[in-house]
Nucleic acid binder design. Structure first.
Lengths: 146, 146
DNA sequence: TTTAGTGCAAAAGTTTTGCATGGTC
DNA sequence: GACCATGCAAAACTTTTGCACTAAA
């Protein structure tokens, strides 16, 4: 219990620092997201919480994810055409390597593009506010199965 | 008329080369996409065609965009959480610089990340199938307006 | 004649919203 | 009391699908 209490504490602090009230429900969603090594949709997270016996509404999960992703606490990855996946990531700048079959996600730290981006953007007169590099591929397990 | 006929010809050839039958409706959608300097959703494209007097169903536009983006003739950019934008891009490998306010899109040719990606992916045992770099920012006009 | 494309309407799915309620500072 | 978070159900939207029909190879 101590271990998970500590974890919850850390997540709550993360919300605080981002200026988001650490409500019980937001913590539930965040905790559930922390258990997921890859990414998950709002619907999936809601189902897991309900299956686990938590009484939380679907709309609340959507609102929590919306608030938290806006605050930068979770990442929103537009995956397929029609659904958004969420992920609890490290704070440091990083990118994603995603298996296109099983959705396994690996964080890639560092960034090879920063200089290039600022150079190109300056040339176009743009002010850069951010960037995202998504690499798709097949993870070892899925390549086997091919 | 000659000019636009030539253009249509070129688009038809692009479909052929991708192994997609160049039906009249697919050409309509492709033509409409060619007029759009930035990107557009299926709904927007359909509306423009209908407003222009074309009799084409919404489902057909969706099917056309699905087929053509699968064949690599058009790019699908998952924009917001819930809608996919499509774009007719150059064939060469490139990335996008998108204004987060007005959605103006600029193609950035070249790629600063290829070596880095293959190095990192190899380390993880992944086989890379593709990557996408999206840079967001403010275009000169929108920065003025701030 | 057989296959691929299309229109239309219905269906499926995801996400958002209105409103009343409950909790917290 | 003021404000924020929530539950629930309805609504809004985007996208997909079933089916009948048409056009083309």
């Amino acid at each position: 219990v101590t271990r998970s209490a500590q974890k919850q504490e850390a997540l709550a602090e993360r919300l605080d620092q981002a200026g988001v009230t650490a409500s019980a429900n937001r913590l539930l969603v965040l905790e559930e997201l922390a258990r997921e090594p890859d990414d998950a949709t709002a619907q999936e997270l809601h189902k897991r919480l309900v299956d686990r016996g938590e009484a939380i509404g679907l709309a609340t999960v959507y609102r929590a994810l919306g608030t938290m992703s806006e605050a930068g606490v979770v990442d929103a990855l537009p995956h397929g055409a029609n659904e958004t996946c969420y992920r609890l990531c490290s704070d440091k700048h990083h990118h994603h390597l995603v298996c296109e079959r099983c959705h396994r996600v690996i964080e890639l730290h560092g960034c090879p593009a920063e200089d290039w981006i600022s150079r190109r953007a300056r040339k176009e007169g743009f002010t850069v506010t951010g960037h995202r590099l998504e690499v798709t591929g097949l993870c070892p397990a899925c390549r086997e199965r091919e």
